[in-house]
Amino acid sequence: MRISFQSGFRHALADIERTSEELARRQREVSSGLRLQAPSDDPTAAVGAVSENAALGAIDRYQRAADSVGSRLTVVDTVLGDIVEKLTQAQAVATGGLGDTPSQAQREAAARELAGIRDALFGDFNTNFRGVFVFAGTSSTTQTYTKNPDGTVAAYQGNTSTISVDIDRTSSVQITFDGSSVAQGGEARDVFAVIEALRADILAGDTPAIETGIADLKKAFDRAVRAQTQVGTDQKALEDQRLRLTDEKLGATERLSKLTEANMAEAISAMSRAETGYKAALGATATITRVSLMDYLK
């Protein structure tokens, strides 16, 4: 086959262009650290990257939710722990008022102490976390309990519905609570009414009524403990979920990295090969164009 001057150059130029394009691509890969510069580099990897980014977005969202819920549950747990403690104190104070032994002064002191416990419980049930009354159900902007002009506590102002927040595609955690389910449950009187009655009963030395009041406080104590246990369970589940989300994020990040990022050892090796190929193409072109019969004419 005749090899024409133009043909030789055309092929040489095509080879130089191809190898220089490959070298430029490999250089970009090494300098940017990215294997996927554009979807056309690897369309399947590109769609995988979209999917993994969406998964990472969801994981980030659930992690933020878990953090927020965790903070809230910590507050609720602390408050419930305080309620349990106050109810324990109230039972002890009320028990001290039983029988004929306590003097009137002691009875009055016990009544005052119960008033203090009532106010402390009032504060606990009205706990506000970042503008939300956590024990008011879904009426989270409504103060859970208010006081009457005479200082007694009015009926529950919230509702019995609660709010949950998703911490995963399939799981959620309750973040507001029905305060009345702790303070009153299925009983006729809420804990504030029980304490008010106990104060009067202790002052009056009405032992049967005091015993009824103590029993009601015990029930309230049990409800608070149950609620705290539930919160504790949720906190444990939340912690497990956080660990799971961390693992999921690690997995998604690794998958995304494999799809989009360059394996530097491979990339540098490929760049080196591409550079060799480019130099070879340049060298071959220079060599073939140097040799001509014209050189031998005298």
């Binding site: 086959m1 005749r2 090899i3 024409s4 001057f5 133009q6 043909s7 055309r10 001509s292 019969l293 014209m294 004419l297």
Partner: peptide
């Protein structure tokens, strides 16, 4: 080009 192209060697 093998048919129509100019070969400098051939021309030489």
């Amino acid at each position: 080009d093998s048919v129509s192209g100019v070969s400098l060697d051939e021309e030489a």
